[in-house]
Structure formats: C-alpha cells, structure tokens
C-alpha cells in the first residue's frame, strides 16, 4: 500500500492561511488502511483545524467527505457539484490523489494534508515499513525477495557495506541491514553462492531518473470514436 502521514497541524494552518471555507477530502484506499486519510482522520483533522482557527480568531469552515478512490477521475467527479462554495480543497489522499483532484478541478486550489512517504506494509499494528520504490526493474529474484533499492540506505547491489553491524544498518540501529537479511534468506534457501556474482550497474532509466514514467496497454485502450 501507499503509506502516508499527516502533516503537522502548524504546517496546515499556515498553508490554509486566508482560506475561509475548505473541503477536506479523504480517500478510502491506501491512506485509509494506514490511518492517515480515511473517514476518521478527515474528521479528526477537520475538527482540529476548525478549533485551531477559532482560537486564532480566524474561523474557518471545514466540510468533510471521503471518496472511495481519490486517484481515479471517475470517483472524484461527483465532487464537482457544489464545489463552487469552497475556496480550497484539502486532500487527505496520497500525492496521486492530490494531483488527480488538481487535474480534475484545475481552477480550484488543491492542497496536500499528507506527506506521502512510501510503498510498504504494516509490520505490526501501528508500524509501517517501506518495501518498494517502484524502480521499474525488479531484482527481488536475485535478492531473496528482499529489496536492496528500498531497504538499503545506499541502494547497494553488491552489499553489505562496512557499516553493517549486529545485523543492523549504520544509519539507524533500529533498522535491519537489508544485505544481512538477503544473505540470511539466501543462505537458508541454500543459495548463498549467488551473492558471489557481481551485479552490474543498474539501468536507472526505468526509475525516476528516466523522468515521469508511463505505461501504455494498447489492448486496454478505448477504440478511437471514429472507429466505433
């Protein structure tokens, strides 16, 4: 899932300075299950913003709604009705949700309430960890199902570096060394010899470095209207 966290209230009140009537829009998918932008979080944030602004002597109305999926135009289209009365939309969606709203409603100020942080999973209740960076060329087949791109602070392909100690990363002693995990996993599967192969430099053009990425599936596209 996409994991996000709410921005500090002070940052949001500064961002919303001058606005009087705001629509807070949650999203029912990823950010709901990571407790950052679902129905309840929209309610909490909206209530907090109304109180903070009332205390500042700058009352602001914050209406609340949550759509099933903020990252697809069809799901946000119904918001169009009645949008005129709001000076801004505060999106509690991920960065994709914010941009989908902004693309669909280009005349409206759309502001982000969340810091979208990573693609990951909950490792225990209340704890989420990164697992994927969408680098565009998956290497999990050679790394025992453990991603060095997202889990090694140096994105090594031939790790571990010299800072790995006691199974932990030099950057943070609470973070397991990805290459220690990779080694243990491959060793357990009797495949540790594979770590002796030198992995060549990566082609990062499949990653963010190649610019915004796009996937086209011709079999799924709608036929041009003139052909219908």
């Amino acid at each position: 899932m996409i994991v996000a966290k709410q921005k500090p209230l002070s940052e949001l009140t500064a961002m919303l300075d001058g606005y009087r009537n705001v629509l807070a829009v949650g999203c029912g998918t990823c950010v709901t299950v990571c407790f950052a932008g679902g129905v309840k979080e929209v309610g909490i944030l909206a209530s907090a913003l109304r109180m903070a602004r009332r205390l500042d002597g700058q009352p602001m109305s914050v209406a609340e709604t949550t759509v099933q999926r903020q990252c697809e135009a069809e799901y946000i289209a119904p918001l169009a009705e009645g949008l005129d009365e709001f000076d801004a939309i505060l999106s509690l969606g991920c960065g994709v949700g914010v941009q989908t709203l902004a693309e669909r409603f280009p005349d409206k100020r759309v502001l982000p309430a969340l810091d979208t942080t990573f693609m990951g999973l909950p490792t225990e209740q209340g704890v989420w960890e990164e697992r994927c960076q969408g680098c565009g060329h998956c290497v999990l087949d050679i790394t025992g199902g453990i991603c060095p791109v997202s889990r090694c602070a140096k994105q090594l392909m031939n790790g571990p570096c010299g800072g790995s100690q006691g199974g932990m990363c030099e950057v943070d002693s609470d973070t397991p060394c990805a290459w220690q995990l990779i080694w243990e996993r491959l060793d357990r599967q009797g495949l540790a010899d594979r770590l002796l192969e030198i992995q060549p430099p990566r082609d990062w053009s499949t990653s963010r470095d190649g610019g915004p990425r796009r996937i086209v599936r011709d079999d799924l596209r709608l036929p041009p209207p003139e052909d219908v």
């Binding site: 571990p160 790995s164 770590l195 002796l196």
Partner: peptide, 18 residues
C-alpha cells in the same frame, strides 16, 4: 576497502573476493 569486523562475518571474505 574491506571491513573484516562488520557483519555478517561469513560474508566479509566473499565480499573481498568480489
């Protein structure tokens, strides 16, 4: 560089070999 004292120890010589 080589760090014989980092972990996992078993892998340190292999890393040198690489």
């Amino acid at each position: 560089a080589a760090n014989p004292f980092a972990d996992p120890f078993e892998l340190r010589v292999h890393r040198l070999a690489k």
